[in-house]
Design a protein around this nucleic acid. Structure first.
Lengths: 355, 355
DNA sequence: ATGAAAGCGCTAACAA
DNA sequence: TTGTTAGCGCTTTCAT
């Protein structure tokens, strides 16, 4: 306990509902009615007495008891695969806000891209009887058995393939990638490579499909594909290789901002100018893309909307659905759009929308 | 519940401890003993029977019931002021890991630098009967009354002034700032400015004190002080002003990496070269400092250690203490240390440690 | 409009 | 070594 900030002598045992009832001269049921605003009505006079007693005692309902009785903890869980990636961090924060709006607290667990940790966390969340979990899984095809067994609802967050029977919220990876490539082609590029993030599960990432579609649509030949884990340092590593290679493409689509951040750094060190020597468009729309040098043209994910949709899917009462949101192309300097590269204003003016 | 991923027909009511007891042919107490490993011993044979029953039923203890009985939720709360700042995000993650090591889940709440939100979250955490909270307050002198009233332990995380009676964990802001300035002075700079982040509460930030100390120690005259909120865009804004000013200092100490990231961007746009025209040292040691261009020399906070110490302070049994950790100077290119600016290896070799 | 009381699932003191 | 049982604080049905 060493951390108590006050003089222990003052420690009064936490007031319970019974104490309030006694002080207010009513039954415990009545206290419940006023605290919860129902299910029965109470007369204004008694209500006032109860409120006074609550205030006098500093009474605070015990969430555990409530959860036990109700069978609902009014908590939601979220499993985040990578706190090193600002995209997930922003997403988690947005979810926390959206959940709070509906009275739910959020228990966040980081799986750090480990399947074992993911399972362990599912276990812990199930035990805590969360009312549902947002799973941003490492796996392409996440293992939902534990969740099923525990009879807890899931929404797959950041999942972009339609999976009948599951609720999911994601972004249109394929369409976004395609827009990226077409944008680059619009700048006159004919040799457009792909820097693709690799994830744990198998399965092909839709960004790769979209990239290829964009290439085909522009009547081009696919440029080189480079693969690396979704981390800045791996983007850096492959950037160094790309910079040194003799048949370097003139443009690159990077499947994530953090990969692009690594590329930027590698190209700077190698004296490869952007966008003159190589143009880049990336994916996510994180703050790092905005403040990098040059600013990264990126497909911004509508994080708040996705978070809201996910919460709705989890605790709302619509049917299970697969919601796919379109990303927005935010033009900055890395693709060649802006020569002077002024900072993108926060309130993005008239962005290009997909779909 | 539209989000259920399985065929509802299969939904079996969650097994309780009583079901396990029945199936194993023992009493509920015995089940408790094996689940909790005590307080009584059970024979290996019965233990096996119980474990089988648990597995067969997919039994999972109900944390709410346990919390109600024990008066402890085995959850800790953390109030984070700004999820836009990677430092806090990393810190929260480290705390989550450290807490998990001791069997605690972490309920994270973002106050977004709002005092109202901070209070609301304290309220909610208190109601959920968390066993303690980590408070990274917006306020210089946080308001602990609610926490006291709720009789819940607190450790002030990211709090660097000694406050008798409170447990706190922080970094040596003053010493770090001083090292930064001395390092810059060592590079020959005589005009060293300060870009200071402003926070909600009053009170002087120790980094400002340290900066001044460093200046004095080097026998210099204080350079200009510029103040801005702790955000990338504000760093950018003041960077633009600094770039345009006629009596710009030759070096800058920025009180946070994110401020420095904004400065970097502004200087690039303005054609101010770093470190040639202006050298920069910042504070925190976030990944953004590592991947920026040029790489930022920064005072890295020992986040994992701080997190561990905070958890220890909250749930360990030592006396309340004020732990101050020394930051480490990580040399990169922004101060003028590295001409070629290769990426700092992850395993920082022989860094300079503060006393 | 208010009250009495059962019971949510679990722990641990006490009994056997 | 194992079993019985009294609550933890709350919600809500069923009386009054």
């Amino acid at each position: 306990m060493g951390a108590m900030p006050h003089i222990p002598a003052a420690a009064k045992p936490t007031a319970t509902r019974k104490d309030v009832a006694r002080l207010a001269g009513v039954s415990t049921a009545v206290v419940s009615y006023v605290v919860n605003g129902g299910p029965k009505r109470v007369s204004p006079a008694t209500e006032a007495k109860v409120r006074d007693a609550i205030a006098a005692l500093g009474y605070r309902p015990n969430a555990a008891a409530r959860a036990l009785k109700l069978g609902s903890s009014e908590m939601l869980g979220m499993i985040v695969p990578d706190t090193t990636n600002p995209f997930f961090v922003l997403l988690a924060h947005a979810v926390e806000v959206a959940a709070a709006e509906r009275g739910y607290a959020l228990l966040i667990a980081n799986s750090d891209a480990s399947v074992t940790a993911e399972r362990r966390h599912v276990e812990s969340l199930a035990s805590r009887r969360v009312d549902g979990v947002f799973l941003s899984s490492v796996l392409f095809e996440p293992d939902l058995r534990d969740l099923e067994a525990a009879d807890i609802s899931v929404v797959l967050l950041n999942h972009s393939t339609d999976s009948p029977g599951f609720a999911s919220v994601g972004v249109d990876l394929r369409g976004g990638a395609r827009v990226a490539v077409e944008h680059l082609a619009g700048h006159g590029h004919r040799d457009i490579g792909l820097v693709m993030g690799t994830s744990t599960g198998g399965g092909q990432d839709a960004r790769e499909v979209g990239w290829l579609e964009g290439i085909r649509a522009a009547g081009l030949v696919p440029g080189p594909i480079v693969r690396a884990p979704f981390r800045r340092e791996d983007g850096y590593r492959v950037g160094l290789e790309l910079a040194a290679s003799t048949d370097r493409p003139t443009a690159l689509f990077a499947s994530s901002d953090i990969l692009a951040v690594g590329l930027l750094r590698a190209f700077h060190e190698s004296g490869v100018r952007m966008p003159e020597d190589i143009a880049i468009v990336s994916f996510d729309g994180s703050p790092e893309a905005e403040f990098s040098w040059p600013g990264l043209t990126t497909l911004a994910q509508p994080i708040e909307e996705m978070a809201r949709a996910a919460v709705e899917a989890l605790v709302g009462d619509g049917p299970a659905s697969n919601r796919i949101f379109p990303p927005t192309l935010v033009r900055r300097a890395s693709c060649g759009c802006q020569a002077s590269d002024p900072l993108t204003p926060r309130t993005t003016a008239a962005p290009h929308h997909l779909g």
